[in-house]
Structures are given as C-alpha cells and as structure tokens.
Design a protein around this nucleic acid. Structure first.
Length: 423
RNA sequence: GGAGGGGUGGCCGAGCGGCUUAAGGCGACGGUUUGCUAAACCGUUAUACGGUCGAAAGGCUGUAUCCAGGGUUCAAAUCCCUGCCCCUCCGCCA
C-alpha cells in the first residue's frame, strides 16, 4: 500500500508507475474519491466535536442540579445529522480502502521499463553442461529411476500434484535440509517453522489479497488460506508491531510447502515438475532499516545464488522489468536454472525488495533510537530456493548416459553418503 | 466440542453508565540536589488521521483509539450482541 498523502502529492509518479507496470487504475478518480472521503471525515469530526462539547455541558448542568433537557434535544438533532453523513462516509471509505489496496508499488528507478522481454540478465554461468548423448527430460529420468509417481499422485489428489518415492523422497528432504542448514549457519538467518494456514489479514498484508484471491486455496469453514509461500507467515510475524532499531536487521529462513491453485494455467507449461499445485520451498525473509534495503537485497540475492553455486548448477540472474514484477515489489531479481533435458531456463527464485509497501499494509514499524520516531521497516524476501524445479534441474544436469543420476557432492552427507541414484 | 473466568497505556493494576482529560504503582526519559553513585524531590511519558502556524525541528488545535466489529443511550472502558485471543475444568484426539 502506498501512503495516501504520497499519492496526493505525487500523482504523476504514481500514474507513471501504473503505466510502466501495464496496470489499469484511474488515479484521478481515486484522488477525487480520496478528497471526498476527507471532506466527509472533516464534517463528521466537526459534529463529534460539537457532541463532545454538549456532553461536557450536560455534565456541568447535572453537577449543578439543573435541567439539561434542551442540551439533550440539541444533541439528538446532531446525532440524526451524523447518522446521515456517516452512512455516506462509510460508502466512500469502503471504496477508498479497496481501491488503495489495488494500487501497485512504485518500481525502483533501476528497474527496466517494459514487458518480460525487457528483463535484463545481469549474471550467467560461464558454461552450460555438455553431454555426449541426448539429455533426457526429468519426467523420463524420474520414471526410469522410479523416484516420482505422477500417476498415483493424480489418483490420490489430482493432476499436477507430486508423489516422491524412495531416493526421490530422500533427495527432496536432503535438499530442503541442506538449504535451511546453509542459510541458518552461514547466512545468519534464524530458522522458523511457521503455520501453513494463515488468515485473511496476513494474506492482505503481504499483498496476495485482494488481487490474487483466485490463485489461493482457502478453507471453507474458517476462511483460512493455505500459504502460497512462506513469505506470508514470516513477514506477518511482526504485523502490527513496533520493533526497536537495535533489533534490525532481522533475517528469517523457513522450509514450508507452498500451495498454488493457479486456476488459469494449462498445457505444456504444466507437465512434470514445472508447475505443480503443491511444492516445497525454502524462503528467506528480512526486516531492515530503509537506508539498508538495497544492500540487503544484493546480499539476499547472493545468499540464494550460493545454494546453486554449491550444487554446481548452471543458472542466470535477471532484473525483472516493470511489467514482470509482482504487485508489491519495488525491485525483483529472478534466478533461473538451466535444464538441459527440456533445454529451458526454470525460475527457482525471486528476490524482492518491497520497501515499505508490505510494512505499511501490515503496519510493521520500528522506533528510531536517535529521534525516537516510529517509521515503517523495509521488508524483503527471496526463495532460497524453490524445490520442485530444483529437483528437475538436478536430475537433468546430473544425468548419466545409463539414466542414473549423480548426487551433488554437498548433498552426500544428507543422503547417507550415497553418490548416485540408480534404477 | 461443552462449562466457566478473563482481555484496560511500555509493564502491573483500579475503574464497571455522566465526578476519568483512565486512579495508583513500576519502568524509561529530562531536571533539581550531590565530590561520584545511589536515594529523595519535581516534571515528562502512546499512536493514527485531519486542520492550522513554521524554512525546518516542532508548536497549537480537532477527531478516533480501554482486544475487534456492531448495537442501546443525549452520554459507554463501563450495558447488550457477534467475532478473535488467553486462562481453568470436562470431553475427544496425534
């Protein structure tokens, strides 16, 4: 959420940001609404002031044992008037609140303007792997090794769910343990194991609601959402709280499953591990001082890349363009792994700085030690990294001619010292 | 799931329709005293959104906020309803 005052004072900036993101939102109509809302609010406050004054007068009259009846009558009249204006106000207010929630964050000046074709690659692994045979897709490898059972997952639940089996299950578990350990030990992140169901207020604070409601799983009885990412429970840890400046920066890491309905997706994109409704992910979240947030974003990106360096996988990093970035982000880097079987780049991480956009929605602040003022923190998050596609990339990059798959060295101690997955 | 008891400022805690502009205490901060520390004494002590003055720091002013949202009333921390959370007991369960 942007500051209403900021929008009022910088309408052109906001208009430009919306245009650069290719969003549709009429700022002028919004500003008119906002003005109207404030006018009504001022009227209401004036009437309340009058009521409060009468209230005191009544008290005085009662204390002096005089008749307050005429004052009471006056108060009743004001009450009537108030009811009318408040009814008007609540209509404007409701519209105002849903509208301001739908205004996206302002992209950082360093973000390339345009659609996904303007994403800028800033780093790429020196060389892609070479094979003296035709590399297979991960689906073929997984079926050959009997480590993933897509058919039975579909029977148990539905299409685009995954059942890992044997060494496949072991690999999945090894990977998230490896990543959480790495970030906790070397990155200085505190490990969290959060709830995987969250309420509406939490989903709103991080920006999944109201725009992405149709992509989320929700429980009927309690209106709780299955988390689409650990970003939601982690960032909401400090919703409606005031932190001390000395507490910052705060770094959290969590492994969680992630649930995405993605109602609109279909076709080739959805085969295998590319786009599944439930996947595992290790997520990094930071709460930092505004002055540090872009340095922190670079460090966050480096922490995510470190996982892939250690796994010795080919990857590239792109700055996402204004149209490709999520609604709440100011700046976002994507990390993509190369999958030689598919001959495609697979997105396994987004590292974003939200500046104070989420903090304002979630009312997450800190007290400045020197000035004593409270202000919004900056929040960041990044995948470190997402699992399903990572498994696909490992299978495809480490495959051997006979269909076996070498286990990356750093995972050996998480896999009972095994070096290879074979049939 | 059932039955009770609760939720008040940074913390503890009183208040239970108009005497509250939320008592009192603790803590924190500033000051006085002091060789230093402590003690004592005096003072300050939230947030949000408007209006207004100011170059700014900030001042003045209005409104709201006693878990949240509704309601009753001229008037609600106080009464009623709904929800959330916490505690005790019972049931069920991993």
């Amino acid at each position: 959420m942007l500051d209403a005052k900021f929008i009022r004072n910088n309408p052109d900036l906001v208009r430009q940001a919306i245009r650069n993101r290719n969003y549709k939102f009429d700022i002028d109509t919004f500003l008119k609404l906002e003005q109207e809302r404030r006018t009504l609010l001022a009227q209401i406050e004036e009437l309340y002031a009058a009521q409060n004054k009468i209230d005191k007068e009544v008290k005085t009259l009662l204390a002096e044992k005089k008749d307050p009846q005429s004052k009471i009558e006056e108060s009743k009249r004001i009450k009537q008037k108030l009811a009318d204006i408040e009814k008007q106000f609540s209509e404007f207010d409701a519209k105002y609140k849903t509208d301001i929630d739908r205004i996206p964050n302002i992209p950082h000046p360093s973000v390339p303007i345009g659609d996904a074709s303007h994403n800028k690659i800033i780093k790429e692994s020196a060389k892609l792997p070479k094979f003296d045979f035709k590399p297979q897709e991960h689906i073929v490898l997984a079926e050959h090794l009997n480590i993933i059972d897509f058919k039975r997952a579909a029977k148990i639940t539905g299409s685009n769910f995954v059942l890992f089996k044997g060494e496949g299950a072991r690999l999945e578990r090894a990977l998230f343990n490896f990543m959480v350990d790495l970030h906790a030990a070397e990155g200085g992140y505190t490990e969290i194991f959060p709830p995987k169901l969250v309420n509406r207020a939490s989903m709103r604070a991080t920006g999944q609601l109201p725009n992405l409601e149709e992509d989320m799983y929700v429980t009927k009885e309690e209106d709780l959402f299955l988390i689409p990412t650990a970003e939601v429970p982690l960032t909401n840890i400090y919703r409606d709280e005031i932190l001390n400046e000395d507490d910052l920066p705060i770094y959290y890491v969590a492994y969680t499953p992630c649930f995405r309905l993605e109602a609109g997706s279909y076709g080739k994109e959805t085969r295998g591990l590319m786009r599944v409704h439930e996947f595992d992910k290790v997520e990094l979240v930071k709460f930092v001082k505004p002055s540090d947030s872009y340095d922190e974003l670079d460090k966050l990106l480096a922490d995510a890349c470190k996982v892939l360096d250690m796994l010795a996988l080919p990857y590239r990093v792109a700055i996402l363009s204004t149209q490709d970035m999520s609604f709440a982000a100011s700046k976002c880097y994507d990390i993509e792994l190369y999958a030689p079987g598919l001959d495609r780049w697979l997105e396994v991480s987004s590292c974003s700085n939200f500046e104070d956009f989420q903090a304002r929605r979630g009312n997450i602040r800190y007290k400045d030690t020197k000035t004593g003022k409270t202000q919004y923190v900056h929040t960041l998050n990044g995948s470190g990294v997402a699992l399903a596609r990572l498994v696909a990339a490992i299978l495809e990059n480490y495959q051997q001619k006979d269909g076996s798959v070498i286990i990356p060295k750093v995972l050996k101690r998480y896999m009972d010292g095994r070096k290879k997955i074979t049939k």
